[in-house]
């Protein structure tokens, strides 16, 4: 499995990560190593088997759609790097 520099930069961008120029070869090598190993899944006898959704395949777990108020707004907002007037603050987008 060959991963190109262009490809790893594309993936990093999708993941909203920035790789430094000097880090790129190592990230490529690590990704290639694990992908080469992971290719063993292609040898597994999986023909006709369903794709699992989890450890225990439970679908559609319902509960009553009730509003529960979280009282401690202040504690929530205190974790925000920047806040103003009870709101999260971000740079201007438009």
């Amino acid at each position: 499995m060959e991963v190109s520099e262009e490809e790893i930069l594309h993936i990093a961008n999708l993941a909203r990560l920035k790789l430094k120029k000097e880090e790129i070869p190592e990230y490529i090598k690590n990704l290639q190593d694990i992908l080469n190993f992971a290719n063993v899944v292609n040898e597994a006898p999986i023909e006709g088997l369903n794709t699992a959704i989890g450890a225990i395949d439970n679908y559609n777990i319902f509960r009553k759609d009730e509003v529960k108020i979280f009282e401690d707004n202040k504690a929530l907002l205190e974790n925000a790097p920047e806040q103003e007037d009870n709101m999260f603050k971000i740079p201007k987008v438009i």
């Binding site: 992971a38 899944v41 597994a44 999986i46 088997l49 369903n50 794709t51 699992a52």
Partner: peptide
């Protein structure tokens, strides 16, 4: 398809 989907099929195999 090559990785994630296959892996979820292998997951079924492991459980079986």
């Amino acid at each position: 398809d090559a990785y994630y989907k296959k892996a979820q099929q292998v997951r079924t195999l492991v459980k079986k």
